[in-house]
């Protein structure tokens, strides 16, 4: 298993999970979402290629009421 932090919570992910796999854990649709891994934005076109590594910090954000 690969241990990572997803939106602040410790998660154990299947080996070779990609950003795309992780997003699917949180949301049925990728519309309106953005992902940063270790403080770098991972563009949507790279989600299926970027594998999660041990200790990665993943943030998956969307629009919320504000401002």
């Amino acid at each position: 298993m690969t241990r990572a932090r997803l939106n602040g919570e410790h998660r154990e992910l299947a080996p070779r999970s990609t950003v795309e796999d992780v997003v699917a854990l949180l949301s049925p649709s990728p519309a309106g979402l953005a992902v940063a891994v270790n403080g770098e934005v991972v563009s949507r076109s790279a989600w299926s290629k970027r594998e999660i590594e041990e200790g990665d910090e993943i943030e998956v954000l969307t629009a919320a009421q504000g401002g």
Binding site: N7, G8, L25, L26, S27, S29, A31, G32, L33, A34, E59, V60, L61, T62, A63, A64, Q65, G66, G67
Partner: peptide
């Protein structure tokens, strides 16, 4: 209309956009 960027809530989303 302004929005904030926040962590996805796995329970409910989408309706704002």
């Amino acid at each position: 209309v302004t929005v904030a960027m926040r962590r996805v809530d796995p329970g409910g989303r989408g309706s704002l956009l």
